[in-house]
């Protein structure tokens, strides 16, 4: 009934040690076109490290990442920049460029990396800001934006590069509760629009609604994967269910 699954991103047997400690232990996963997969797991489990390795911000010790079949391990320095450009990355703490206003935060990589002229880059930037509901904030600087607005600018900045995949590393963890919704809405819009995404989050309710696969990570390994309803059912006795029950107890929702 569905078109045959097209893998966009394949992570094969990634391992990574940092400071002499094994942080990622033989992690593999596949993202098909239009899929959103959600990474959950206890703090220190290796979610951030996994996303950074996928992006080659950390070079994995073993294993490889394939973007539409092209191996990242076989790319040289120059090609890695092109590879990264095709994978959008959203950070927990936004990492906007503090000296640039919102539209220039989005435009700068269009100019430096894609070589667009200034006017074209700014036009594209404003279109992307509009898409995340910030058309009226284009000339505000990061220090003048709320956390939720900053994260939406960072999403616009990533989208402007026309990424094939988006990696989101707890995009709402640094936000006040009343600002989480505006960012999750943008992510949900992207998911409905068919963006391929891998997202680490503690927003279990959000994950249940939007994803068909949850990946539970602990101690650098993928312990369990499955549909949220199966994996998180209280009767499933899965580690993921126990973890989520604890989260719910702590956060009270």
């Amino acid at each position: 009934m569905n078109a045959p699954a097209q893998p966009v991103l394949e992570v094969r047997n990634l391992s990574k040690s940092l400071g002499g400690k094994l942080i990622l232990d033989d992690v593999s996963l596949t993202l098909n076109k239009g899929e959103l997969k959600v990474l959950i797991g206890p703090s220190g489990g290796g979610k951030s490290t996994l996303l950074q390795c996928v992006h080659y911000l950390h070079r994995p010790d073993r294993g490889d990442v394939f973007l539409e079949g092209r191996s990242a391990a076989e790319m040289g320095r120059r090609n890695i920049c092109a590879f990264r450009q095709e994978i959008g990355m959203i950070f927990q703490d936004f990492n906007l460029f503090d000296h640039l206003d919102a539209e220039n935060n989005v435009a700068i990589a269009l100019r430096k990396v894609k070589g667009l002229a200034k006017a074209a880059a700014l036009a594209r930037a404003r279109a992307e800001l509009d898409r995340v509901g910030l058309a009226d904030k284009a000339d505000l600087f990061p220090a003048q934006l709320s956390g939720g607005q900053k994260q939406r600018v960072s999403i616009a900045r990533a989208l402007a590069m026309d990424p094939k995949v988006m990696l989101l590393d707890e995009p709402t963890s640094a936000l006040d509760p009343d600002l989480i919704g505006e960012v999750l809405n943008v992510v949900a819009d992207l998911a409905r629009g068919g963006m391929t995404m891998l997202m680490a989050t503690h927003q279990i309710g959000f994950a249940r609604r939007l994803t068909r696969e949850i990946i539970f990570m602990e101690n650098g390994r993928i312990i369990e994967t499955g549909r949220p309803d199966d994996l998180l059912a209280p009767a499933s006795e899965s580690r993921a269910a126990a973890f989520c029950a604890k989260l719910t107890e702590l956060l009270g929702h």
């Binding site: 992006h55 920049c81 092109a82 994978i87 990355m89 906007l96 460029f97």
Partner: peptide
Amino acid sequence: GQFRAALALGM
């Protein structure tokens, strides 16, 4: 993090 974000954009 700003340096990392710049690399992530392909710089």
